[in-house]
Amino acid sequence: MIPTLHTERLTLRAHVMEDFAPYTAFLATGRTLYMGGPHDDRTAWSWFCSDIAQWHLLGFGSLALTLKNGTFIGQVNVIQPPIFPEPELGWCVFAPYEGLGYITEAATAVRDWAFGPRGLTTMVSYIDPANTRSINVAERLGATLDPYAATPNNDPTGVWRYARAA
């Protein structure tokens, strides 16, 4: 039910409990500034569980990014907790692995899975307008800013919208 996706350099797999400690360490760093962070382990647990549970509740959720040697380096997810107007494509990568194109590679695979086998008809990324690195990823994936889209809790976040391939 939870897919395993393979790209040239990565394997995207279901989370296991061993992922929680490195995920928590990541959320505690300043790298989560645009995710409202840094966050403590209780928030980490809530997000970790919410993103996993959505596989069972909605049929989509988070996948762990791993190098071919098994190293866990980040996460890409399609999630829609109750406050999200639409399914969101999101991502994070741990500090030593940024700038290497891993996020673009992984998020492309997840986008294609979501619009393809999963059959979603709409997907966006909610991105802080100051988060230029994530905006660059979204635009590399073909997303465009949708100034009219609803946002979670009516927050003033940017909504980058993905188009299904024709």
């Binding site: 939870i2 279901a14 989370h15 296991v16 409990m17 929680f20 647990w45 809530s46 970790f48 569980c49 919410s50 996993i52 549970a53 959505q54 596989w55 069972h56 509740l57 907790p81 109750p82």
Partner: peptide, 14 residues
């Protein structure tokens, strides 16, 4: 929601 999803996520994690 956090509690609800933690209840669910226990199955794959534990």
């Amino acid at each position: 929601w956090n509690w609800f999803t933690a209840d669910v996520a226990h199955w794959p994690l534990f």
